[in-house]
Amino acid sequence: MPNISRDEVAHLAKLARLGVTDDELDTFAPQLDVILESVAKVSEVVGTEQDVPPTSHAVELTNVFREDEVRQGLTQEQALSGAPAAEDGRFRVPRILGEEQ
């Protein structure tokens, strides 16, 4: 039975770098709980006896590869054209808080 706590939602919001207020947490936590419960119903339908493995892809394909051949990508100008800020041919981003990942 899913049961997502307010703390868990706050933690997920932090991982997703979303600023969520206390009021929003009060609203979202129960809503997410309902969503999880609905999804859990699918598990009930599948049941434990039947052999329906979880899937990550709608089409049953495997081994879709491409040859190791270089294809023309974007120019530096094109690559940076959508960037809010650029400097010296690079994407410019605000100060990074915290450590290297």
């Binding site: 690079r90 410019r92 990074i96 290297e100």
Partner: peptide
């Protein structure tokens, strides 16, 4: 990183 004002990405 520490003390940097901004960062540039390649």
């Amino acid at each position: 990183i520490h003390g940097a004002e901004h960062s540039l990405l390649d």
